[in-house]
Each structure stands twice: as C-alpha cells, then as structure tokens.
Design a protein around this nucleic acid. Structure first.
Lengths: 209, 209
DNA sequence: GTCTTTCTGTAGCGACCACTAGGGAAATGC
DNA sequence: GCATTTCCCTAGTGGTCGCTACAGAAAGAC
C-alpha cells in the first residue's frame, strides 16, 4: 500500500506504474483531522469525510483503508501537528513544574485557536462510541500522558527539586484533569483569556519550593 | 398524553378507560437513564433502549414520545436522582468555598459509585452528537452550573467572606473544570480514592481566609 | 354479553450507515 | 501503437437507524 518514495523523499522519485492519484493525500488527511476533531469518530460519517476531503468513497478506501484505519492515522497526525505541546514541554522544560505550567498555558492557546475546532481531539473524539476499541485506544493515550507526567514528577522528587512527601500521582492526575477540564471548557465556549486565568490559578496547588 | 392522576397522586386514582400499560413507566425510565448515561445520546439506539427497558418500540413511543423527548426526560430525572449534589452543596453549605469543597468530595464518590456508569451524564452524554440542539441543551446546563457558583462566590466577596480582589469567574470556572476533569478521569478508570485526592489538593487554589 | 378505548406485538417504512463490485479513464513500459 | 497497472465514478450491497401502520389483546362502560 505505501510506496517507497513516500518514506524516502530524498530518493529520486520513480513514478509508479498506473494512473496517479488525483488528490493530495496529506491535504485530504488534514481535512479528515478537522472533521473528526469537530464531530468525533461516530458522528463523522464516511459520506461526511468524502465530502470534506473532496474525494469519492472508493478513493478514500484505497488510500486510507477503512474508517477506523483513517481515524487511527488521523490521531497520529493530530498528535504530530497539534497535540504534542505537552510532550514538548515535558522534554524541554527543566522541571516538572515548569513543564506543567507551560503545558497548561499553551493548552489555553491551542484549545481556542481560531480556524480549527476547540478543545482536544484525543479527549473528545472517541467518547460515546459504538466501537469499544476506538474508545480504549484514546483512553490509553490519555492515561499514558498522565503516567509520563507522574514519572517526571517522581524524578524531580528524587533529585530534591520537589519535597520528599510530594504525591506525584495526585499532582500528575491533577494536571490531566485540568487539561481535560480546560478542553471541555473550550468546547463549551470559554475564551482563551478565561482558560489562561484557569491555567494560572491551577498552579497554586504545587508545593512551595 | 399525561394523565391527570399522574400529576395529582393524592387524588383517588380513577382508572383510565382502555387497556392498562403493562410495564412500570418509572422503572423503564430508570433503565433508559443507565443506558444513555453509559453510552451517550447518539450511541444508544432505540433498539438498545427497547431491549434494556423491556418494552416494544410502539410502547416506548406511546409512553415517552420520540428518542429526543425520552432523552430530555432522562436528563431531568438524572438531575433529580443523581446530579443534584452540586446544587445541594450550594444550598446547604454556609460559604461558597465549603460548597465547592463538598461538591468535589461528593463528586469523587458519585462518579465512581459501583453499579452505575462512572462520571456525569450531563458532561458526557451529548458530546459528538449529530443533533446540535441536544448538545446545546447539556452545554447550557453545564454553563448554568458554573454561573450559579460564580454568583455564590460573588455573594461571599460582597459580605467579606472572600477577599475583595478575588476573581469570582475564574474560581467558578476552576470548580467547573475540576468537576469535568474528575468526571473524565472517572470514565478513564480513576478510583474513588484517586478522585478524592484530586478534590482535596484542588482546593489549594482558594484564597487564604 | 357488546362497544369503546387504549396498549402491545409484528412487520416494515424510507433514510442513512460503512463499504465495494465493476467498467471506464489515465498514467507507465514496451 | 499496444499491453499493463492503477485510480476514479457509478451504482449499488446488506445492515441498522428512528419511527410507525395495523391488527389483535386487555381493560372499563353499558
């Protein structure tokens, strides 16, 4: 299904044999991201997808597999293009506290960015879903994010950056709950300024250093 | 559609003319609550409903109207039977702070109660919904709850129970975000103890009194 | 008993769901 | 030119959706 030159763009493009695809795969995927982001997995029908992607159903199935495979690709690409600010904060900030603070502040911006759906696809797109597997895959993602913050917090406790008695699991879960609450608030109409105020006061729960 | 004696139960029950209903309406409604609570509006089909309610489709439509009317009744009854702990805290506690603290603590218990779906129906049941009206009706409920807390906080500021510079809107929105985050956490598998720890540390954002 | 009223079960409505068979169209290799 | 390969469009597939027409069953009124 995948072609060599799509994975090795530096290699000179040897054209495939048959009729070339008449649409840009990445552009169509981006449209699918926006559709699933706005309406969720279940409420986005294949005919909705073909309409916004500007292609016929057989082209969609040939290029992306079935609806579920397309959704999985959408989730991956969403993570790369929109949902990586948390991991980035975790990787780049010197302390867990700075990482959480930056993540919440950036969430206020990301979740209310104009021109795209509000809130987080990973949090909302697979709720109330008839396929339990799809629900579970995004739930695993959410819980993995919280676990990543927990281990980062534990590392800070180990080096004395945070007090010895700090409850790392509760702090990490609080960050997760705030992210999820902010995403819901963004969907419910909260403005960027309101979410920023939320992010700021939420940091008051961190132990004094 | 409604019968007189259903609204005036103290009046001696004069039996209606035709064949009596062969199922208990309240029991069937309770089953519908659990179904919508667990799977949401869209993912709960009418045939799901007739199966768990133990009645045929014509009986459902005769007794409750259509699917949307049944859902609205479900939301009202859910509010009475399960979702009123926030309003109760607001009405019974002496201060806004005590009300929020009690609400969050009770949410930890309510959202993980065994034998029923985790989390809050009002928060989750109308997301990713093809009917915008259904989504909006529950969104209005959520925002109304936050507004109620905001005015209660403002009242406390007015009487000096809270410092004059307190940002009532941000405090109320924080309570709403925490409730929504806790509900999502409950759906994602968090235990009652974990949510209780969350509720406790979340109160650290309130101004020192 | 008979008539009227109301509820219940069967059976099926049109519409939409995710998905695909099959024939023609557009590119390459020769 | 011709054969081959791949894609796109039309037109469906069987299945489920929310919903209901209709006939029979079960009650009260007389």
């Amino acid at each position: 299904m995948e072609r060599i030159e799509e994975k090795n763009p530096q290699v000179k493009q040897v054209k495939p044999r048959g009729r070339p695809r008449s649409f840009d795969r990445a552009t169509a995927l981006e449209k699918a991201i926006l559709a699933f982001w706005e309406h969720g997995y279940e409420a986005t029908s294949v005919s909705d997808l073909t309409r916004v992607m500007g292609i016929g159903a057989p082209s969609l199935y040939a290029a992306f597999g079935d609806k579920r495979a397309l959704f999985e690709e959408v989730v991956l690409e969403y993570g790369r293009r929109y949902g990586s600010f948390g991991e980035r904060a975790l990787a780049e900030e010197p302390t867990a506290r700075a990482a959480v603070e930056r993540m919440l502040r950036e969430a206020a911006y990301e979740y209310t960015a104009p021109g795209r759906p509000h809130g987080c696809l990973v949090i909302h797109a697979a709720t109330n879903c008839s396929s339990a597997e799809v629900e579970e895959s995004l739930r695993d993602r959410r819980n993995a994010n919280i676990a990543a913050f927990e281990s980062r917090i534990k590392a800070d406790i180990a080096v004395g950056e945070l007090p010895a008695g700090t409850d790392a699991a509760a702090l990490a879960r609080h960050a997760g709950a705030m992210i999820q609450g902010m995403s819901q608030q963004a969907r419910d109409g909260a403005s960027r300024e309101e979410l920023e105020a939320l992010a700021e006061i939420a940091m008051a729960i961190w132990p004094r250093t």
